[in-house]
Amino acid sequence: MFTSDRRTRGELWFDRLNVVGMLIICFVTMYPIWYVLVNSFNDGTDAMTGGLIYWIPRQFSLENYEIVFSNAGIMTAMGITVSKTLIGTVIHVFFTAMVAYALSRKELMFRKLYMVMGTVTLFFSAPLIPNYLWMRDLGLLDTFGMYIYPAMFSFFDLIIFLTFFREIPDGLEEAAKIDGANDFSIFVRIVLPVSLPVVATIALFHGVWQWNDYFVGVLYTNSEYLQPIQTFLYRVIAQSSSNQIVGATGGAINRTVTSQSIKLATMVITTVPIIVAYPFLQRYFVKGLMIGSLKG
Rank of each mutant, 00 (worst) to 15 (best):
L128D: 04
L122C: 00
V99T: 03
Y101Q: 03
Y114L: 09
L128N: 05
Y114W: 09
Y114V: 04
V99I: 06
M109Q: 14
L128F: 11
V120K: 07
F123Q: 02
N131T: 13
A100E: 00
L133M: 13
P130V: 11
I129K: 11
E107T: 15
I129G: 11
V99R: 10
F123L: 02
S125D: 01
Y101A: 08
T119F: 14
Y114N: 12
F123Y: 00
S104E: 12
R105K: 15
L133P: 06
L122P: 00
K112H: 11
I129M: 14
R111P: 04
V99M: 02
A102M: 07
L113E: 09
L122W: 00
L113R: 05
T121C: 03
P130F: 10
G118R: 02
M117D: 12
V99P: 01
T121R: 08
K106P: 13
F124G: 04
V120T: 08
M109F: 15
R111L: 04
F110N: 06
L128G: 07
L133S: 11
M109K: 15
L103N: 07
T119I: 14
M109R: 13
Y132N: 08
T121S: 09
F124V: 02
M115L: 05
F123G: 01
N131P: 06
M109P: 14
L128K: 02
Y114Q: 06
M117F: 15
S104M: 09
P130R: 08
L128I: 10
L128Y: 07
G118S: 05
F110E: 07
S104Q: 09
S125G: 01
K112P: 05
L113W: 04
K112C: 04
R111T: 07
I129T: 04
F110D: 06
N131W: 10
K106W: 14
Y132T: 00
P127I: 07
K106Q: 15
L122S: 05
L103D: 12
Y132C: 11
N131F: 08
A100M: 01
A100G: 02
A126I: 12
V116W: 11
